[in-house]
Design a binder for these strands. Structure first.
Length: 864
RNA sequence: GGGCGCUUAGCUCAGUUGGCAAGAGCGCUUCCCUUACAAGGAAGAAGUCGGGGGUUCGAGUCCCUCAGCGCCCACCA
C-alpha cells in the first residue's frame, strides 16, 4: 500500500468509497442477517429537486443513526425514495415547456404527462446522485418512487377502500383555491400573513325605503355575489331589521336580513354581508338560511358574467372599481385601514381564493382519535417531547382534508362517472361499463394531493398492501427523522394512515430537528439569495466536514444558523485524524491493529488512564446517541479525541514508545481504532480511508461498534497532568523556552513518585520525589492537585513580579470560591437538606482549597 | 386571538431529574516551524447566564412578571 499523504485531501478520499460500499452490499440489511430489524424511512425528496441544506442535515442525522445501528449488528434498513411532488414538478416542467413556446393545454394531458416522465428520467437522478455524494448509506436495491407501480397500486387500493368505508367522499364545498395554479389546495398549504387592508363600510338600503343597514367588508368585490345580510340574533340594534329585505348596491339584487350566531356584534357594524359562494363562513350561513349562491369570481380570480359591468376585472382591480362605484353611487360610507390575516399559496404565494367547487375529501374524524392516542400514550414518541403539543393541537383541530388537485401530474383519482345515469364508480380496476349498461364512462380528471401517497410511504415502500417479507420484518419502522415544518403535512398523515390501514403505528420515534438558517438567521432560500448549496461546500471542504459541522451545530431541535467556519473547523478535525493515523501507522506499522478487541489485559498507569477515559467517554457518547442527542454526543467525543487522546496521550506515547513498550503500541492502536469507529457514522469517508491503513481488514462501515472494557483510572495520573501544565505555564510566564530544563522537586504527602517519563517528556532536568518536606533554598513552588506541590529551582532566571501578580490573582480567585463554600457549609439548612454527596463534595472542596490557599500564601510571602 | 421557542464570552451557539470554580467553535493575546499535523502545538484574556420578583439549603437550570426577537396555529367579515 502506498504511503499516506502528508495531508488529508477530502476530494481524493471521498472519490472511491461509495461505490465500494455499495458493491460490498454494506448498505443492505442483509449484511447482518441475524440482526434485529431496524428501519428508517427517508423523507422522500422531490424527484426533480436538488439537495439543499435541509436535506443535508436531515439525512446526515439519519445516516448517523443507521450507520451506528448497522455497526451494532442490527439488520439496518434505510430505504431511499423520491416523491413525484405533483404541483411542484408540474410547474417546473410547464415552465420549461414555456421556454419552447409550448403549454400543457396545447399538448394535451397524455403528451404532457409523457413529458414529465421524460423530465423525471433526465433529472430524477440528480438528487439521488447528490445523496450518494454525501455518503448517505441508503439501500439502493430497495429504492422507491411514489409514482412507481407498487406505490401507485397502494395509493389506488387505499383510495378505493377508504371510499367504500365512507372515509373518502366527494362534495361541493368552499375550499382553498390558488387562482394562479388553478387548483384546490389543502388547509396546510395555506400560509397566513398579516396584511394591511381596507375595511369598507357600505350602505344597503331597505327595499321599501326608509333607511337601510350598514355593513363592513374587506372584500368589497364579493358584494356582487351577496345573497343576504346577517346580524346576531341578540343584537338589539338590529332586532327590527331581521326579516326585512335590502337591495344590494350596484347590482340591485334583493336580499334578506337573517339572524345568525356566527356574527360577531362587536366587529364593524355588527352586520355582515353574506356571499355564500366566496367565503367559508358565509357558505355555512347561507346553507342555514337557504340563501342563494351566486358565484362572481372564476377559477382564475377574475370577475365572471354575474359581476355585470365588473366582469373581466381581476379580483383586486374589481375591489378598487367596486369601491369607486359605491362612492359615486353614494353607498360608500367610509373606509378604514384594517390589518387582517390573508391566506397565501404556500407554493406561489398567490392570495388564496375561497372557491366553491366539487372536490374529494378525506373524512378525518375517525382517523384522529387513534392518531392522538398513539402519541398521548407514548406509543409514538416525539423527540424533543415538546413537539407533541404542535402535533396534538393540529390533530385536535383538524378539518376534512381536500385531496383532489386540478392538475395532471400525480395519481389520477380512480373514480368514473357514468354519462348515462350519473353513477359514480370507484374501483381498483378501470371499469368498462356501468351497472346501467352504459359504456360511456368518464374518469375524474383530478389527481391526488402528493401528501396522500407520501402518507403511505412507511409501509407502501415495504411492499404493503401485499404481506411481503420486508413489510413483516421492518414494519413498524424504528424512527422517523424530519424537520418540524412538515409535522402537519406528513408526519401526522403517516400516523393517521398507518394506524388505520395497517393497524399499527408507522414508526416508534419521531426525531424532530430544526431548520438550517442562513448566517443572518433567516430561512435559507433562493429568492432571498442567502442559500448555500451543500454540494458547493462538499466540493471545497468535503462531505465529511459538512456532515460533522451540521451534527455539531444541530442541537435539540433548535434551528441552526449555518456558518462556513464550522465546516472549516470540521475539516481540520479530519486532517487531525488523518495525521494521528499517519503517526500510528508510522510507529505501529500498517494493518497492525485488529478490527476488534486487542485491549491490553493489565495496563500500566499510562495505558490505564487513556483506556479508562476511552471507556467513560464511549459510555457517555453512546448513551447520548441513544437519546438522539447528537451534538452533545459528538461534543463529548470530539473534545476527548482532540484534547485528551491526541494532545495528551499521543504526545505522551512518543516518550513511552522510546521505551519500546508493546503495551503502549497496543493501547495507541485500539484507542485510535475505536475513535475511528465512533466517528465513522458522522464522517464515513475519512474514517474508512484511515481504517484501510490502520486495520486494513474489511470495511469500517461493516465493522462492529466498539465496546472498550471498563478500566480503573490510575490514582495520580491527573496530578501528573496538572504538573505538566504547571511546568509549561511556569516557562511561559517566565519567558523561558518551552524546552528549557527545569530542576524540580515533587513534594506529596501521599508519597506519589514522579513518573519515569517526566524528564524526557517535559525536559525536566530531574524531578526528585520527596515526602513532606520542601527543599531549602531559592525556589518557586507550584501547587498542583490538592496535596502535591512542586518546587522548581530558580536558576536566577525568573521574573518575580510576574509571579507575584499571578499568585495574588490566584489567591483572590481561590479565596472567593472558598468563601462561598464555607458560607454554604455554615448554613444548617444546607447540611440538613442537601444530599449527602453534595455536602461531602463541598467539604472536600473546602479542605482542598484551604490547603491550596495556605500554600499559595506561603509562596507569596516567600516572594516578599 | 391562542401556542411554542429564543435572549449565556467580541461572533455563532452548547449546557434534560436544580449542586458550575459557567463550556465549545471561530476570533483575540503571548510563545513555539518539537521528524503525525503550522489545516499544528503550548499558555492565556474574555461572561453580574436580557431586566425585576419569587420558590429553594442552593437557580443559567423551576415559577411569576416586564422587555426584545423569531416561529407556528386561527373561517371575525
Amino acid at each position: 500500500m502506498a504511503a499516506m499523504d502528508p495531508a488529508y485531501d477530502p476530494k481524493r478520499v471521498e472519490s472511491t468509497w461509495y461505490s465500494r460500499w455499495e458493491k460490498a452490499g454494506v448498505f443492505r440489511p442483509e449484511l447482518n442477517p441475524d440482526g434485529e430489524p431496524f428501519a428508517i424511512v427517508i423523507p422522500p425528496p422531490n424527484v426533480t429537486g436538488v439537495l439543499h441544506m435541509g436535506h443535508a442535515l436531515d439525512q446526515t442525522i439519519q445516516d448517523l443513526i443507521i450507520r451506528r445501528k448497522r455497526m451494532q449488528g442490527y439488520a439496518a434498513l434505510w430505504l431511499p425514495g423520491t416523491d413525484h411532488a405533483g404541483i411542484a414538478t408540474q410547474i417546473v416542467v410547464e415552465r420549461e415547456l414555456a421556454k419552447e413556446g409550448m403549454s400543457r393545454e396545447e399538448m394535451g394531458r397524455e403528451a404532457f404527462i409523457e413529458q414529465v416522465w421524460l423530465w423525471k428520467a433526465a433529472f430524477g437522478g440528480k438528487i439521488t446522485d447528490q445523496i450518494r455524494r454525501m455518503g448517505f448509506s441508503t439501500d439502493w436495491t430497495r429504492e422507491r418512487f411514489t409514482m412507481d407501480e407498487g406505490l401507485s397500486t397502494a395509493v389506488r387500493k387505499v383510495f378505493v377502500d377508504l371510499y367504500h368505508e365512507g372515509l373518502i367522499y366527494r362534495g361541493n364545498r368552499i375550499i382553498s383555491w390558488c387562482p394562479r395554479d388553478r387548483t384546490a389546495i389543502s388547509d396546510v398549504e395555506v400560509e397566513h400573513e398579516d396584511e394591511v387592508g381596507e375595511l369598507v363600510y357600505v350602505h344597503y338600503p331597505f327595499k321599501e325605503g326608509g333607511g337601510g343597514i350598514e355593513v363592513a367588508t374587506t372584500r368589497a368585490e364579493t358584494m356582487l355575489g351577496d345573497t343576504g345580510i346577517a346580524v346576531h340574533p341578540d343584537d338589539p340594534r338590529y332586532s327590527d331589521a331581521i326579516g326585512r329585505i335590502v337591495t344590494v348596491p350596484l347590482v340591485h339584487r334583493q336580499i334578506p336580513i337573517v339572524a345568525d350566531e356566527a356574527v360577531d356584534p362587536a366587529f364593524g357594524t355588527g352586520a355582515v354581508k353574506v356571499t355564500p359562494a366566496h367565503d367559508q363562513t358565509d357558505f355555512e350561513i347561507g346553507r342555514r338560511h337557504g340563501l342563494d349562491t351566486v358565484c362572481v369570481i372564476d377559477e382564475a380570480g377574475v370577475i365572471n358574467e354575474n359581476g355585470g359591468r365588473f366582469a373581466g376585472l381581476d379580483r383586486f382591480d374589481a375591489r378598487r372599481a367596486v369601491k369607486e362605484a359605491l362612492a359615486s353611487d353614494g353607498a360608500l360610507i367610509k373606509v378604514e385601514q384594517h390589518v387582517h390575516a390573508v391566506g397565501h399559496c404556500q407554493r406561489c404565494h398567490t392570495v388564496i381564493e375561497p372557491y366553491l367547487s366539487d372536490q374529494w375529501f378525506v373524512k378525518v374524524a375517525p382517523l384522529v382519535g387513534p392518531a392522538i392516542d398513539a402519541v398521548r400514550s407514548g406509543d409514538i414518541r416525539f423527540v424533543p417531547e415538546r413537539w407533541d403539543k404542535t402535533y396534538l393541537h393540529w390533530m385536535e383541530n383538524l378539518r376534512d382534508w381536500t385531496i383532489s388537485r386540478q392538475i395532471w401530474w400525480g395519481h389520477r383519482i380512480p373514480a368514473w362517472y357514468c354519462e348515462a345515469c350519473g353513477e359514480v364508480i370507484v374501483a381498483i380496476e378501470d371499469p368498462t361499463r356501468c351497472e346501467c349498461g352504459s359504456t360511456d364512462l368518464r374518469q375524474d380528471p383530478d389527481v391526488l394531493d402528493t401528501w396522500f401517497s407520501s402518507g403511505l410511504f412507511p409501509f407502501s415502500t415495504l411492499g404493503w398492501p401485499d404481506d411481503t417479507d420486508d413489510f413483516r420484518r421492518y414494519y413498524p419502522n424504528a424512527v422517523l427523522v424530519t424537520g418540524y415544518d412538515i409535522i402537519s403535512f406528513w408526519v401526522a398523515r403517516m400516523i393517521q394512515f398507518g394506524l388505520h390501514l395497517t393497524g399499527r403505528k408507522p414508526f416508534s420515534d419521531v426525531v424532530i430537528h430544526g431548520l438550517v438558517r442562513a448566517d443572518d438567521g433567516r430561512k435559507m432560500s433562493k429568492s432571498l439569495g442567502n442559500a448555500i448549496d451543500p454540494l458547493e461546500i462538499v466540493d471545497v471542504h468535503g462531505a465529511d466536514a459538512l456532515r460533522l459541522a451540521l451534527i455539531q451545530a444541530a442541537a435539540s431541535g433548535q434551528d441552526v444558523p449555518f456558518q462556513v467556519e464550522w465546516v472549516d473547523a470540521a475539516r481540520r478535525f479530519g486532517n487531525k485524524l488523518w495525521n494521528v493515523v499517519r503517526f500510528a501507522v508510522a510507529n505501529l506499522g500498517e494493518h497492525s491493529v485488529p478490527a476488534d478487541g486487542g485491549y491490553p489485559a493489565e495496563p500500566g498507569p499510562e495505558s490505564a488512564w487513556i483506556l479508562a477515559r476511552l471507556h467513560d467517554v464511549f459510555a457517555r457518547t453512546d448513551e447520548l446517541l441513544e437519546e438522539y442527542r447528537f451534538s452533545e454526543a459528538y461534543a463529548v467525543l470530539y473534545s476527548f479525541a482532540w484534547s485528551e487522546a491526541f494532545d495528551w496521550y499521543l504526545e505522551l506515547s512518543k516518550t513511552l514508545l522510546k521505551a519500546d513498550s508493546e503495551e503502549t503500541r497496543a493501547t495507541l492502536g485500539v484507542v485510535v481504532r475505536d475513535l475511528l469507529k465512533l466517528f465513522h457514522p458522522v464522517i464515513p469517508y475519512v474514517t474508512e480511508e484511515l481504517w484501510s491503513y490502520l486495520v486494513g481488514e474489511g470495511l469500517i462501515a461493516a465493522a462492529t461498534w466498539p465496546h472498550p472494557p471498563e478500566c480503573e483510572e490510575p490514582a495520580h495520573f491527573e496530578v501528573f497532568r496538572e504538573l505538566v501544565v504547571g511546568f509549561r505555564r511556569f516557562r511561559a510566564e517566565h519567558g523561558l523556552s518551552p524546552r528549557a530544563p527545569l530542576q524540580a522537586t515533587l513534594v506529596d504527602p501521599d508519597g506519589v513518585a514522579s513518573p519515569w517519563w517526566f524528564p524526557q517528556f517535559q525536559a525536566l532536568a530531574s524531578v526528585v520525589p520527596a515526602v513532606g518536606a520542601a527543599p531549602a533554598g531559592d525556589v518557586f513552588s507550584r501547587v498542583v492537585g490538592g496535596s502535591a506541590q512542586v518546587f522548581i529551582s530558580l536558576e536566577g532566571l525568573v521574573d518575580v513580579d510576574a509571579e507575584r501578580t499571578r499568585i495574588d490573582k490566584e489567591i483572590a480567585d481561590v479565596s472567593s470560591v472558598l468563601d462561598r463554600s464555607r458560607g454554604k457549609l455554615a448554613k444548617p439548612d444546607f447540611l440538613d437538606k442537601a444530599p449527602v454527596e453534595v455536602v461531602a463534595k463541598e467539604r472536600a472542596k473546602v479542605v482542598e482549597f484551604e490547603a491550596l490557599l495556605e500554600k499559595l500564601a506561603a509562596q507569596r510571602s516567600d516572594l516578599g
